[in-house]
C-alpha cells in the first residue's frame, strides 16, 4: 500500500508541479497585489489593505457589472437548457442521418470564438445584416432593428452565446441518455405511460444528476465568460449595457491601469465561485445520498 501511495504521488507530481508553478503563483500574486494600489505598469505601489474591497462594496459600476453578469449567465443558462435538452432528446432517437445531424449540432462549439462573434455581428448588422433583411422581407418589422445598439445588444449577446455553447449541453445530456437501460422505458410503456410520462418518470430522474452538473458548470463558465462578451462590443459605446464582472475586472487592470483593483475584482469573483462550488457539492452529496 505504501508503495502504491509513493507511485501515486510520483504520477501526480508533474500535474501538481505544473499547477503549483503556473496557477498557484498567479492566483497568490493576484491576492497579494489586490492589497496594494498598484499601477498596471508604472512602479507605483502603496499598501491599502482591504481598501479596494471596501471601495467595490459601494461602487455603482461593480454592482452594475454584477447585475449584467447575473442577467447574462441566467438568460444564457436557461436558453442553453431550453434548446440543448430537446435537441439531445431528439438526437437520442434512432433515425437516418443522426450522425450527420449530431456533427452539425456540435459545429458551433468547435468554431473559434472570434469567428463565431464575427459571424453573428455580421448577421445582426443593422444596415446589411441578413437578420434585418429577412425580418423586413417578412414584414415583421418596419425599419431595420439596431441589434447592436443600446436596446438589443444584450439580446444579441445572449443569442450569440447560446448558439455557441448549447452544444455542450447537448453532448453531455445525450451521453447520459444513451446509458439509460432500455428496459426502463419498456416497462413504462407496458404500464401504459405516454411519451410525456415516460420523460417525466424515467428520463428526468435518470438524468437529474447530470443536469445538476450541467447547470453548475455552465453557470460558472457563463459568469466568468470574457472573450465572447468582450468581442461583442469591445469597450465601445454600447459596452456599457453588457459590461459583466470579468470585463470590468479586465478594464480595471488593463485600461484604468489599476492593477491592484483589477486583482481585487478577480479575487472577489474567485471567492464567489468557490462558495458556489462548495454549495453545489453539499447539495449534490445530499441528492446522491437520497437516491
Amino acid at each position: 500500500m505504501r508503495q502504491n501511495a509513493v507511485a501515486g504521488w510520483l504520477l501526480l507530481a508533474p500535474s501538481l508541479l505544473l499547477l503549483g508553478g503556473l496557477v498557484v503563483f498567479p492566483v497568490l500574486y493576484n491576492a497579494w497585489i489586490s492589497l496594494f494600489d498598484k499601477h498596471a505598469f508604472l512602479p507605483v505601489q502603496r499598501f491599502v489593505g482591504l481598501g479596494h474591497y471596501v471601495y467595490f462594496a459601494h461602487d455603482e459600476e461593480f454592482w452594475n457589472s454584477f447585475g449584467h453578469g447575473l442577467v447574462y449567465a441566467g438568460a444564457t443558462l436557461v436558453l442553453q437548457l431550453a434548446v440543448g435538452i430537446p435537441t439531445a432528446l431528439l438526437l437520442n432517437e434512432g433515425f437516418r442521418g443522426r450522425t450527420l445531424l449530431r456533427g452539425v449540432v456540435l459545429f458551433p462549439y468547435v468554431i473559434p470564438t472570434i469567428v463565431a462573434v464575427m459571424l453573428w455581428k455580421w448577421l445582426l448588422n443593422d444596415s446589411y445584416g441578413l437578420v434585418n433583411h429577412l425580418l423586413i422581407a417578412a414584414g415583421a418589422v418596419r425599419g431595420p432593428v439596431a441589434w447592436l445598439g443600446k436596446d438589443w445588444i444584450m439580446t444579441s449577446l445572449v443569442i450569440t452565446s447560446v448558439w455557441q455553447f448549447f452544444p455542450f449541453v447537448v453532448v453531455t445530456y445525450l451521453a447520459r441518455l444513451q446509458t439509460i437501460p432500455p428496459e426502463l422505458y419498456e416497462a413504462a410503456t407496458v404500464d401504459g405511460a405516454g411519451a410525456w410520462r415516460r420523460f417525466r418518470h424515467v428520463t428526468l430522474p435518470q438524468t437529474r444528476s447530470v443536469l445538476f452538473v450541467i447547470v453548475l458548470l455552465r453557470s460558472i463558465w457563463m459568469f466568468t465568460k470574457f472573450d465572447t462578451v468582450w468581442l461583442m462590443a469591445g469597450d465601445g459605446g454600447v459596452s456599457r449595457y453588457i459590461r459583466t464582472l470579468p470585463v470590468y475586472a479586465y478594464a480595471r487592470s488593463f485600461t484604468y491601469l489599476q492593477a491592484g483593483m483589477g486583482a481585487a475584482l478577480a479575487v472577489i469573483m474567485f471567492v464567489m465561485l468557490i462558495v458556489a462550488t462548495a454549495v453545489y457539492f453539499r447539495v449534490f452529496e445530499r441528492e446522491e445520498a437520497m437516491s
Binding site: L22, F25, Y29, P246, A259, A266
Partner: peptide
C-alpha cells in the same frame, strides 16, 4: 475558475 485575462500579467512575468 480564474478568467484567463486576470492572470495573464503574473503569467507573463513567470514565463
Amino acid at each position: 475558475m480564474f478568467a484567463p485575462v486576470m492572470i495573464i500579467i503574473p503569467f507573463y512575468i513567470l514565463v
